[in-house]
C-alpha cells in the first residue's frame, strides 16, 4: 500500500460524492454527498500527514470536521425551512428562479 493507493481512494470517494451530487435529487442526500466529499478530503489529508510525517494534516481533519458539522447544522436548518415552504425536497422541482 503506497501513498498513491490512499490518494486514489480519497479521490475516488471525492468523485463519488461529486457524482452523487449531480445525480441525486433529494436535498438531504445532497447534504450527504457533500459530507462524502469532505471526508474524502480528510482521508487525503490524513494520508499526506502520514506520508510527510507531520501533525498538521491531522489537525486539519479536526478543523474540517468541525466546519462540516457547522455546515450540516446550517444546511439541515435550511433544508427544513425549505421543506416547510415548498413541501418537497426534490431539487428538480424547485426551480422558480431561472433564466
Amino acid at each position: 500500500m503506497t501513498l498513491y493507493h490512499f490518494l486514489g481512494l480519497g479521490l475516488l470517494l471525492f468523485a463519488i460524492g461529486a457524482a452523487g451530487f449531480v445525480i441525486r435529487n433529494n436535498a438531504v442526500v445532497l447534504l450527504l454527498c457533500i459530507e462524502i466529499m469532505l471526508n474524502a478530503v480528510n482521508l487525503i489529508l490524513a494520508s499526506f500527514a502520514r506520508y510527510l510525517y507531520g501533525a498538521e494534516g491531522q489537525i486539519f481533519i479536526f478543523i474540517i470536521m468541525t466546519v462540516a458539522a457547522a455546515e450540516a447544522a446550517v444546511g439541515l436548518g435550511i433544508v427544513i425551512a425549505l421543506h416547510r415552504g415548498h413541501g418537497t425536497l426534490a431539487m428538480n422541482r424547485i426551480k422558480d428562479l431561472k433564466g
Binding site: A18, F21, A27, L30, L31, I34, M37, E71, V74, G75, I78, V79, A81, L82, G85, H86, M91, I94, K95, D96, L97
Partner: peptide, 15 residues
Amino acid sequence: AGMEGAVKYFLLGSV
C-alpha cells in the same frame, strides 16, 4: 424564492 436561493447557495457553496 428566498428559500430556493438559500438552498441553492448553500449546496453549491458547499461543493
